[in-house]
Design a protein around this nucleic acid. Structure first.
Lengths: 219, 219
DNA sequence: ATTATCTATAGATCTATAGATAATGC
DNA sequence: ATTATCTATAGATCTATAGATAATGC
């Protein structure tokens, strides 16, 4: 509760936001965090309004209906994820170095609880996987972009000779993604950073195998 | 809708169950399936009653309140998972053979859509990870038992000399679990069995590495 | 943005009743 | 055969809460 609303204090203690300034951005940041705990479905406008500190009707000044709020929340989460995880990793050199940087910034965003319920898109994807609609489609888009980034890292690593040019790229992406998903799942469930270490080592193990073994044929 | 309720026809067309026989078991089977689509939270008594074909009040003849129904549903899912995934695998010899059997029966239960939304416990765990309560605790128990089984397979494999006795068991369990979680996540999301194949190969890759490399030191 | 209000739906409770079974009387 | 009783259910209804809208204030 209070620990969530306190997160908006990042805006600075200097100018305490007057109620009239409780902006769309604040609503969406709060919504994005709450969604990882309660789910898109479980997030009620009442709870959200209370958490933000405005009335329920105040939300309707910013969003036509709940669906519009949900879609905007997803966009906000995508921007946060981009800023917190993707952009920092793009500083690293392409290839395995960048892949490890992606993993590390992902782990960091879990540890710092950028979203209290772990990776926003893992949580929402699991909730929406069997429920069609625009929200589902948008989440799948973000995940596809994420997997494309992982794939590009593998391809670059091949160009740089860091991993075997004959390696099965899709298989490598699957295994890396598996390590990251498991890190999120287990870390959120047990709140034990050991799982981040295990995931990091798991990725290293995958990369080590691909760097050496030229015998890894596809069946 | 209809495809879910039709699943109870396994009881046989011979003795069409009279309304008086619409049993607790039918309710719980239907509930377990629906939960993997709508979530524990998203499952309304109205929807469940409609799906089963009884009135809302009929549900209260079997369960004190929704929480009792949720807990009973989790128990039912645990029994189904045991029958569909764990028991078949226990037929295989202990060690890597059993580990692969567990994975295969897990994949099979996904492909056959024993639960339409994929692995019941992965779905519910993701939903409940940050929401305390008896349901959460019970789900964690089931997952712990599951991870213990994977661990025992690795230990047996070490005894049989199938994998390096110096291998880090917890790390191996993490990596195997990662492959299984990713299989569920991606298969449910895309409905493409390629992800089951990738997961199977991922597990083979982990086991192959542990069988050979005695150089795999921790850190 | 607020307050007041609306409609739909959530979980839950109550009363009535259908159909079956058990106990009893003749 | 009769009466009492049991079990499982339907239908009506209650309170709380969901999303949503209208009128209004600053």
């Amino acid at each position: 509760m209070s620990n969530i609303s306190s997160l908006k204090t990042e805006q600075g203690a200097k100018s305490r936001p007057s109620k009239g300034q409780t902006s769309r951005a604040t609503i969406l940041l709060t919504a994005a965090k709450l969604v990882t705990i309660k789910g898109l479905n479980g997030l009620s406008l009442r709870d959200l309004a209370a958490e933000v500190g405005i009335s329920k009707s105040g939300l309707y000044a910013h969003f036509k209906d709940k669906e519009e709020l949900e879609l905007a929340t997803i966009e906000t989460a995508a921007v946060i994820f981009d800023n917190e995880v993707l952009q920092p990793a793009m500083q690293a050199h392409a290839g395995t170095e960048r892949l490890k940087a992606v993993a590390n910034s992902f782990f960091s965003h879990l540890e710092r609880k950028v979203f209290p319920g772990g990776c926003f898109f893992a949580a929402v994807a699991a909730e929406l996987d069997t429920r069609p609609g625009p929200a589902h489609d948008r989440v799948v888009e973000v995940l596809d972009k994420w997997l494309s980034l992982l794939k590009q890292c593998i391809l670059d690593a091949q160009l740089h000779g860091e991993i075997d040019a004959k390696a099965d790229v899709a298989q490598a992406v699957f295994e890396i993604e598996a390590m990251l998903l498991a890190a999120n799942f287990l870390f959120v469930m047990r709140n034990d950073p050991i799982h981040l270490t295990q995931s990091r080592r798991g990725i290293d193990n995958v990369l080590a195998r691909l760097a050496v073994s030229t015998a890894a044929k596809k069946r």
